[in-house]
Every structure is written in C-alpha cells, then in structure tokens.
Amino acid sequence: MAKSKSRRPPRIGDAPVFRNTMIAVVLTLVALVIIAPLAVIGYEAFSRGIAYFGKTIANSDTRHAILMTALTALIAVPINTAFGVAAAWAITKFDFPGRRLLLIVIEIPFSVSPIVAGVAYLFVYGLQGLFGETLQSADIKILFALPGIVLASMFVTAPFVARELIPLMQAQGRDLEEAATSLGASGWRTFFFVTLPNIKWALLYGVILCNSRVMGEFGAVSVVSGNIRGQTNTLPLHIELLYHDYNAVGAFAAASILAALAVVTLIAKVALERRGAGRVRRPSLAGTAPDISETTP
C-alpha cells in the first residue's frame, strides 16, 4: 500500500491543503443542498409527534391517494417492463432499417417536460382532443380517471427499462441466443434461460427506477388527473393539495412516504450497481453500444 503510494508522484490537486478544503466545501454543500431537504421532510412530518403522524397517514384521503399511486404503478410498471424487454430484444437481436430512429423516439419522453406530456394527452383523450367526442359518446372515461394517470405515467417512463437493457444486450451480442436456438430451444426458452440470467440485474435496475418515477410523477399526472380529492389524487398530487390547504404536517407526512421510497430506491440502485447494473450505459469504449446515455436518474 505505502509502496505503491510512494512510487506514484502526487497528482494535481493532491496537496493536503487544497484537498482538504475541497472536501470540506463539497461536503458542506452536499449537506446544505441534498441532505437538508431530506432532513426537513422528516422534521416537518414528525413535528407534532409520531401519533399525529400516524393519524395523518391514516386519513382516508391520504390512504386513497396511496392506493391510487400503488395501483398506477402496479399497472404502468409491468406494461412498461414488457415494452422495455420487447424493444431491447427487437433492437439488439435484429438488424432492420430505422433502428436508430426508433431509439431516438423511445428516448423522447426524457426531453419533454411533464407538463407538455400532460397537455399532449389532453389533446388526444380530452373533450377537445382527437378522440374526445367518440370516447364521450361511448361513455369511456380516460382523462380525469385512472386510465389517464396510467397513460401519462407510461409516457414519462417509456425509456426507463429499455435504456438499461439495450446497451447491455448490445454488448453481449447474439451468439448465446443463436447457439440456444440452433440447438432447438424455442424463443421463449432462449429468452428465459439464456438471455434473462444475463440481464436480470439491469432489468431490475430499470424496473426500480421506473417504479420510482411512476410513483413520484407530478407534472404530467396533475394535468390529466383532474385532482379530484378521494378519487383521482395520486400521492404527489395529494401532497400539493394538503400543502395548499396549509396542512403542512399532513403534506410532509405524505411526502415522507415518497422520500422513504426515494431512499430505498437509492439503496437498491447502489446494491444493483455493485452487481454491474447501470454501468454499461456509459459511453462505451468500443463505441458499438448505442449512445443512449442521456440521463441518469
């Protein structure tokens, strides 16, 4: 240890004074910018004690909002996962014209503001939208109801699973799958016994990030949900409602659930990264993986 240290000349910025100042400044800023917001959520949520916190969470509107959020995730995340796996399989296992374009279109939701997404959905399913009148005459409610919330959530999270799988499956190539099928395995068998074991951590990583975003989505959902208390309010929308009702404790109690989810997501993320997930996405040295390394939530 000491030997290898002494052999290497100090790199720039390694002077103790500079090093310690940098660490101190950055740690202070991290405490102020990242930890303080997290701390204030817990502080405000429990500012009137645990009993009051429990009472707030047990409020029927809050319970309903939790249920709506869970239900939305339960529908949107599996569909999204299926899409992500299908997209990754199609794009990495076959060559067809338009692959690059397809990759770009899948990535678009990352660049679009959630508000724009919500407004866009309004012009499809709203009364003034493309299918509005047809839907109304058929008495099908999509906007201001669960289907609208699920659709908007699926828009904002469309790239999450695909983006984790595509670079990885691209890097792994097609040899294993081709060997399996040439030995007579069916497509499903090949996927479940050959491909899936190689991508399971990346898949889980994508699913966890997707779930976290679905449960926390605010902008897009606030446009399409109609904010009907006790009916179409998801947890993030309910937080806004309580906050504007001057019910800060209630808002922060509800927020603490989502903050806890964020912390759990971060822990799971670190655990999965140790297993190699989330790594291949970075611009690869070989330059063969599609460069869909845009955002890294």
Partner: peptide, 26 residues
C-alpha cells in the same frame, strides 16, 4: 433468432400509442 415480429410489433405499437400519438395531437 425468433421473435422479431412479436417484439418489434409490441415496440412500435407502444411507441405509437404512448409517445407519438399524444405529441402528434399536440
């Protein structure tokens, strides 16, 4: 390898309904 029509079909349908349709409508 099998599954091109199935996976590409799902992908295109999802992208069309979830991403392209609303942005097109806007």
């Amino acid at each position: 390898l099998p599954g091109l029509s199935l996976t590409l079909g799902i992908t295109l349908m999802y992208v069309a309904i979830i991403v392209v349709l609303p942005l097109g409508a806007l």
